[in-house]
Design a protein around this nucleic acid. Structure first.
Length: 306
DNA sequence: AAATGATCCAACCGCTGCCAC
DNA sequence: GGTGGCAGCGGTTGGATCATT
């Protein structure tokens, strides 16, 4: 069933570019009253716009905390790293970049970064099985790093959720965000063997989504895992490597490293668990490292931006 | 100087998830 | 549990601007 449009188009609701007068009406109203219900806002503010348009105009352009101007190299790096982790989750990426909007980041990605990375042979997965050529290998490494980071994030979500009562739901969410649908271990390694061989970089997430991943999550939601505060620091380290501390002083960075090392346990635990279950993980698959060191991503970024 | 193509980005569209009923 | 309303999100569009020929 379709849902009603967000505004009544028969009443001549204005569309298109905003005028300075409209901007002023919107800003004055929100600063005086807050936005409240976006649906009601246009009427209350005296605007002939739909609420959705008002919200977009405010969040993407008029909000006072929006940072204007070109993206700094650090911001570029962060965007690429975050995109490697969460994909096209622009709002999540924007949340890590104060003053930047999801729309701005999305546009910047599509118009600048994607092309830049493509030129470097790092953007987009290879169209077919990875060949032996250096460009294809780079692409495979890039994809591997992305998937690894995604899996790490899933694990840290699992770990942090285990400290609350909703661990299973969080883990399930993480699992459903993976590239492949849930499948049993048997089908994964039997019927799907050729596909796995064709795209070895999918192996980790395939496992994570399989019965083995389910079993691991079931086992570990009941187990003791690092405290949530440590996981938060680990997430930050994974999301923004090199952005430790906040002030960037060495002592806090060293402290973070210690805590990060502890918090990596769930990741290693899953590798160990899968290894025990399958006797399969030996670090190499079809000539590529299944779980390359985290600095693969950093190297790729340095190549792209330095 | 004019025409054409490329790029940028604000804004829109439609889908999804959440929540109240 | 089903339904409808809402806010938020990501993909896409189209006009403006810039670069090239």
């Amino acid at each position: 069933m379709g849902r009603a449009p967000c505004c009544d188009r028969t009443k001549g609701i204005k569309k298109g570019p905003w005028t300075p007068e409209e901007d002023k009406l919107l800003v004055d109203y929100i600063q005086a009253n807050g936005h409240g219900s976006w649906r009601m806002l246009p009427k209350l503010a005296g605007l002939n716009r739909c609420g959705k348009s008002c919200r977009l105009r405010w969040t993407n352009y008029l909000r006072p905390d929006i940072k204007r101007g070109p993206f700094s190299p650090e911001e570029q790096k962060s965007i690429v790293q975050l995109h490697a982790i969460v994909g096209n989750k622009w709002s999540m990426i924007a949340a890590q970049l104060p003053g930047r909007t999801d729309n701005e980041i999305k546009n910047y990605w599509n118009t600048h970064l994607k092309k830049q990375l493509r030129r470097m042979g790092l953007a987009d997965p290879p169209p077919g099985p990875a060949s032996g050529c250096p460009a294809a290998r780079h692409m495979a490494q890039w994809e591997t790093a992305r998937l690894e980071a995604e899996a790490r994030l899933s694990l840290s979500l699992l770990a942090s959720s285990s400290s609350s009562s909703s661990g299973g739901a969080m883990a399930a969410t993480a699992a459903t965000t993976s590239a492949s649908a849930s499948s049993s271990a048997s089908t994964f390694f039997a019927a799907d063997k050729s596909a796995a061989a064709a795209r070895p970089v999918d192996v980790f997430l395939r496992l994570w989504s399989s019965d083995i991943g389910d079993a691991f999550r079931r086992r570990n939601t009941a187990a003791a895992l690092p405290p949530a505060v440590v996981i938060k620091q680990e997430e930050r380290a994974v999301l923004l490597p090199g952005h430790g501390g906040g002030g960037g002083d060495d002592s806090s960075a060293a402290s973070d490293e210690t805590e990060v090392a502890e918090a990596m346990d769930p990741y290693q635990m899953f590798l160990d668990f899968a290894g025990e279950e399958l006797g399969l993980y030996h670090g190499r698959y079809g000539g590529f490292s299944l779980f390359p060191p985290p600095d693969v991503l950093a190297d790729a970024l340095d190549m792209a931006f330095n």
